[in-house]
Simulated assay, not measured.
Amino acid sequence: MTLNHLVEGPASAAPLLLGPSLGTSYALWDKVAPELSVSHRVVRWDLPGHGGSPAGLIGPGATVGDLADLVLALADYLGIQRFAYAGVSLGGAVGLHLAVHHPERVDSLAVICSSAHFNGAKAWQERAEQVRREGLDRLAESANARWFAGDFTVPELVRDHREADPEAYAACCDALAAFDLTDRLPEIGAPTLLIAGREDPATPPAHLRQIADAVPGSALVEIPGASHLAPAQCPEAVLAALRTHFDGAPRRGMEVRRAVLGDAHVDRAQARQTPFTARFQDFISRYAWGEIWTDPTLTRRERSMVTLTALIAHGHYDELAMHVRAARRNGLTPEEIGAVLLQSAVYCGVPAANSAFAVAQRVLAEEADEG
């Protein structure tokens, strides 16, 4: 038996495993995972007895290490050797355990609304006893207060809490009762991001700050208005933090964008950015420049040739002028640019190539004058 899971994104993309909080299912990630799957092979999983995972995967006296072993078994089942990992609360504790005990498997780590310890064993032992005795109905009634700030709620997650298997839930409580990695945090070598909800009563920001202070080179982000289930309540803020941490595509994309188009052009584009256009600018930097232009399959010279031809075909002559300059930065000579334009005359049409030659001649003349 393996943990119930959902895989999203390209099979060839870098794997990213997402762990849930106690009492929830992988639906916790519904507003974040689809966006992350644009650039990652995202694997969301359910705790034993939660969502679709069999309850019998763990029993009384379970540990976070037992849950981590189930996650590794799932990764092995999917043929994943190394992966990035993000987890919430108990799912975050699993990530910490993996980073300490299986560093060869974890490329990078994000710990969200979690802790290196969960305030001692007593409260969790009492909760486990209560759940084994009474079931989960009464505990589920207080889920909103424990999970969310204000009047916010996600009915599907509250339902998942109520429908979880009581024995498996209690075993997860046993795992939280026994968990304490405080002394092992300095051993974590994976790049680590901590995300805290400022309104979180279960694992307040001080818990995440303790981890950040102990893990070398880690970073801490606090999200205003977020309580314990930050990915559900503040998905855009969580998504932005995870994107920056895991793929660095906006940063890499901006570097490539500047290298190809020049600082002056990018600075003008950034200066014109407004809240209305900000997401589009992020898309361009992250996807076009951070993923496509950084793909090593084609050289930048070859990409410039393809780009010039496509712009001529669609009559985008303002963009063409910009990319003639980019082609020169990418190493194309005026003669090679002319050959590309001549090739386009055959396949895109003589009038289009005629306009393109006029644009390119003007740009090359300006370059000569500047030189």
Rank of each mutant, 00 (worst) to 15 (best):
Thr2Tyr: 00
Ala13Val: 03
Pro15Tyr: 00
Trp29Cys: 01
Arg41Ala: 09
Trp45Arg: 03
Thr63Glu: 13
Leu72Gly: 04
Ala75Ser: 13
Asp76Ile: 01
Asp76Pro: 02
Leu78Lys: 09
Phe83Asp: 11
Ser89Leu: 01
Val100Glu: 07
Val106Glu: 05
Ala110His: 07
Ser114Met: 04
His117Glu: 14
His117Leu: 04
Phe118Asn: 06
Val131Gly: 08
Leu136Pro: 04
Asp174Trp: 06
Pro186Ala: 04
Ile195Glu: 02
Glu199Tyr: 01
Asp200Pro: 01
Pro201Gln: 12
Pro201Ile: 11
Pro205Trp: 09
Pro216Ile: 13
Ser227Glu: 06
Cys234Thr: 14
Glu236Asp: 15
Ala237Gly: 08
His245Tyr: 08
Phe246Lys: 11
Gly253Phe: 01
Glu255Met: 05
His265Met: 09
Gln270Cys: 11
Arg279Thr: 15
Arg279Ser: 15
Phe280Met: 15
Phe280Ser: 14
Asp282Gly: 05
Ile292Arg: 14
Thr299Tyr: 05
Met305His: 08
Leu308Glu: 10
Leu308Gln: 10
Ala310Asn: 13
Arg329Gly: 06
Thr333Asp: 05
Glu336Pro: 00
Leu342His: 10
Cys348Gln: 07
Val350Glu: 07
Ala352Ile: 00
Ser355Ala: 12
Val359Met: 05
Val363Lys: 01
Leu364Asp: 10
Ala368Gln: 15
Asp369Trp: 08
Asp369Met: 05
